[in-house]
């Protein structure tokens, strides 16, 4: 079986440095801002797409009407999507049809049924989607395909996986202060149904010996963290991991900012996630700053 692009990066088989990145929705406010910020970090943004805006340029990057044109002119490895939710599904479809292997979906408020459709398309083309509703992916010093600030992310050997943005920055900043660097930080997305989940990312990174620790940042809703605990017990018990789960004090049946952050009945509580992780030998910090202390002990 051949590796997907994302897997080859996370497994350490291939460096992400210099990978060619396309920005879909490049002429919007966020598209423009983050094109500039990604470029200043060193990401190789080769083209942008906005239907009807072909021929323009953003920060020196040529804009095309379609992904197909952009890919045929530049060859593109990965795409980052900033288009409005109504256009998300079409944007993802277009990217994979044009032969792009990895799509990072920043777009918020995508209807669940569109996310499911986009997952089918990714499977069909043997590609990967990160997101939607994600801050993206950063591999310090190599690449940033995302919207995260760069200061908290020091290069190192820790893999940070998260369901949220700013909380990842905050915790990575505590890691930085403790001298702990990051191999890759990846937001899987804050929606109830997301494209690439924690376990799939862990599986991609399983054989990568450079990764010494995984920091898992979860939150209320669903059973993604419980499944990670099961994965650690059954499949990869060598992996060192520490976790933090937000929403200990959240009321039931209320969506707390992220569409996926909701306790339904008894499903999705911090208590359940914490217990499952502890049972799998994963310590769970009560407060964000305690993650760095736990990580230090582990390393």
């Amino acid at each position: 079986m051949s590796y997907t692009l994302l897997r080859s990066w996370l497994s350490g088989e291939k460096s992400a440095k210099g990978a060619k990145v396309l920005v879909q929705g490049i002429t919007g406010r966020y598209g423009r801002l983050h094109t500039e910020l990604m470029m200043s970090y060193g990401t190789n943004i080769v083209a942008g797409v906005t239907p009807g805006k072909g021929g323009e340029s953003v920060n020196g990057v040529p804009v095309y009407n379609t992904c197909k044109e952009a890919v045929s002119k530049h060859g593109v490895d990965a795409s980052i999507v900033f288009v409005p939710a109504q256009n998300y599904l079409n944007a993802v479809r277009e990217a994979f049809e044009a032969g792009i292997e990895l799509v990072v979906g920043i777009t918020e408020r995508v209807p669940v049924r569109d996310t499911i459709r986009s997952i089918h398309i990714a499977k069909q083309y043997h590609g990967d989607i990160i997101g939607p509703n994600t801050p993206g992916l950063i591999m310090p010093n190599d690449i940033k395909i995302g919207i995260m600030p760069v200061q908290p992310f020091l290069q190192g050997d820790t893999l940070v996986l998260s369901r949220s943005g700013t909380l990842t920055y905050e915790i990575s900043n505590y890691l930085r202060k403790a001298g702990i660097g990051i191999y890759a930080a990846l937001g899987i997305g804050g929606d109830p149904i997301i494209s690439t989940n924690f376990i799939e990312v862990l599986e991609m990174a399983r054989e990568n010996n450079r990764i010494k620790l995984v920091v898992l940042i979860g939150e209320i809703g669903g059973d993604a963290e419980e499944r990670v605990a099961e994965y650690i017990k059954q499949i990869d018990s060598r992996k060192k991991m520490v976790a933090y789960v937000a929403g200990r004090s959240a009321p039931k049946e209320k969506r707390m900012g992220h569409a996926g952050a909701i306790i339904m009945g008894n499903v999705g509580t911090v208590e359940s996630k914490e217990k499952a992780l502890n049972d799998a030998g994963v310590p769970v910090a009560k407060m964000p700053w305690e993650v760095a202390e736990l990580a230090k002990k582990m390393l």
């Binding site: 998260s162 369901r163 949220s164 943005g165 700013t166 909380l167 990842t168 920055y169 905050e170 804050g190 940042i217 939150e219 209320i220 933090y244 937000a246 929403g247 200990r248 004090s249 959240a250 707390m256 900012g257 992220h258 952050a261 009560k286 407060m287 964000p288």
Partner: peptide, 16 residues
């Protein structure tokens, strides 16, 4: 706060 995860974590801090 800014960002859903951070605000959620802040609720926990205040409750703690």
């Amino acid at each position: 706060g800014n960002g859903a995860g951070l605000v959620l974590a802040t609720l926990d801090m205040v409750s703690s």
